[in-house]
């Protein structure tokens, strides 16, 4: 009989203890909350040290970016890409180094090179990119680079580039101008020079 009531007593007290635990967790939710409301809150990026100076060597390689005004259309990055994820089309201009305002083409790069080509298409498919960084080395104008590291001041670090459609991960860096405008711009200069 004593055991019967002892069991009941133990049951009641242990159940109340359990309810106390959940109650404390419930009222302390704001302090103990561990869920990160992701798009509004983000974890801070951890500091990393793999033996290189962050300012000299880019350890982040978050995504490729192209400063299209500096691109001379030499196709070196397209040729070196091991997965062929870079596609470049160019059209020749006759007046080398001249600005063409109709298609927002700048004639001279920030390194002072006179451009001979209009880049009409510069697509990088980031779904195919293997982040090998090989396209960065041959670029004579240093206009294609991985964001982050020493390039952090040129472009924000972006490691969360998710999209709803896979096609949105094909980055189109070339200026958005119609083909007609490009042909007009290049043939007009041809007619003038002829």
């Amino acid at each position: 009989m004593i055991k019967y009531f002892a069991t009941i007593w133990e049951t009641v007290t242990t159940l109340l203890t359990g309810m106390g635990v959940t109650w404390r967790h419930m009222v302390a939710i704001r302090r103990d909350n561990v869920t990160l409301q992701y798009p509004e809150e983000r974890w801070p990026r951890p500091e990393r040290d793999i033996g290189f100076d962050h300012d000299k060597y880019n350890v982040i390689r978050s995504r490729l970016h192209v400063d299209i005004d500096d691109c001379i259309g030499c196709l070196k990055c397209e040729r070196v890409c091991p997965v062929d994820c870079i596609k470049i089309d160019t059209v020749k201009v006759l007046n080398r180094g001249a600005d063409i305002p109709n298609i927002r083409h700048k004639g001279i790069t920030s390194f002072g090179t006179k451009k001979a080509l209009v880049v009409t298409r510069f697509d990088i498919d980031m779904t195919e990119c293997c982040y090998c960084n090989l396209c960065v080395y041959p670029c004579p104008e240093e206009c294609i680079y991985m964001t982050g590291g020493p390039n952090a001041e040129k472009h924000d670090i972006d490691y969360e580039f998710s999209e709803y459609d896979r096609n949105d991960l094909i980055y189109r860096f070339a200026k958005k101008v119609s083909d007609e405008d490009v042909t007009n711009a290049t043939t007009e200069t041809q007619e003038v020079t002829d």
Binding site: W23, H25, M26, I29, N33, V34, T35, Q37
Partner: peptide, 15 residues
């Protein structure tokens, strides 16, 4: 909401 709070979660938050 209550179940989430008791498990240190925040429950549906309108994401």
């Amino acid at each position: 909401k209550i179940s989430s709070f008791m498990q240190d979660k925040v429950g549906p938050m309108g994401q």
